[in-house]
Amino acid sequence: MTAVLLVAGVASLAVLALYGVGRLVRVAAQGAPRAPFLSGNPPVEHALSRYHVRWYTVTMLFLAFDMEMVFMYPWTLVVATVGASAVIEMFAFLAVLFAGVLYAWREGALRWV
């Protein structure tokens, strides 16, 4: 834990130091903000708008499947001691979830654009 804090601190300092070095050797200070690159055309709108993603169903599938990792990691520790019942139970659980994925695939949730 101490090692984590130490490395996180030192790595952050290194990033800051890099900025410091950049500050020392740069040819010019950061100028006024520029328009974003649009092949030489001025922007019409801000790019930061409501961004419609078409893979939103995949995010929900992902979150549901991902929840199962909460159980999966501790499960790996006890498979040997608990025995066959642990394996059967976990893979039954996974099979149920994968059935959900197959259903979503059939409904076209894995394709977008």
């Binding site: 169903t57 929900m60 599938l61 549901a64 499947f65 929840m67 199962e68 159980f71 501790p74 499960w75 790996t76 520790l77 006890v78 001691t81 608990v82 019942s85 642990a86 139970e89 039954a92 659980f93 149920v96 979830l97 059935a99 959900g100 994925v101 259903y103 979503a104 409904e107 949730a109």
Partner: peptide
């Protein structure tokens, strides 16, 4: 935690599995 999940809390896990399945189907629908 693993022992609890595979032992006394098995029912919780199984119910959650079905709930997650229901979530998947419901969101897709």
């Amino acid at each position: 935690l693993g022992e609890a999940l595979m032992g006394s809390k098995m029912l919780v896990m199984m119910v959650l599995g079905l709930a997650l399945f229901a979530t998947m189907v419901a969101t897709v629908v």
